[in-house]
Amino acid sequence: MNLWNRLMCICRRRSPWLFHMNTGSCNGCDIELIASLTPRYDAEQLGVRLQGSPRHADVLCITGPVTHTAVQAIHTVYGQVCGPKAVVAIGSCPATTNVFIDSRVVVGPLNRHIPVDVFVPGCPPRPDAIVQGIAKAAEILAMRGDTETAVEASIAPDFKLETTEVRR
């Protein structure tokens, strides 16, 4: 590994910029994510910065059990984040769909749609757990380097979006 690559690794690890996306969350995890940036937990020590645009972000933080209407938005936003990128699923909802399991409007869990690097389970997870998850995602970013999204194959291949099943 030459000097530039080593420097790039350090810089990627020390500067994860977040984009926060809600896919039908009850807002519990969203509040905890914001709490992890507030003075008590102060994620900015790790170089974390909440960005307004997905184009600026490295780490995509997703909360919520992935509702039917959110699927297209997830794909759009995931495509808009420039590589190398990592995805952190915050809360139990994106990991397992939690209490919304078997709901007819929920098409989670999240890793059926996009590759997820770090799961932070909890309902909601504590802010320090979220900070730890982001730090882990930053380390994954540093190791991943320029090779794009190594876990693309881990998405369940049999999944397709069934639009007709949603009845109102």
Binding site: M8, C11, R12, R14, S15, W17, G47, D58, P84
Partner: peptide, 13 residues
């Protein structure tokens, strides 16, 4: 930090 941010952004696609 601003230096880290700058170098990291240079390495993004």
């Amino acid at each position: 930090q601003p230096f880290f941010d700058f170098v990291k952004l240079l390495g993004k696609t």
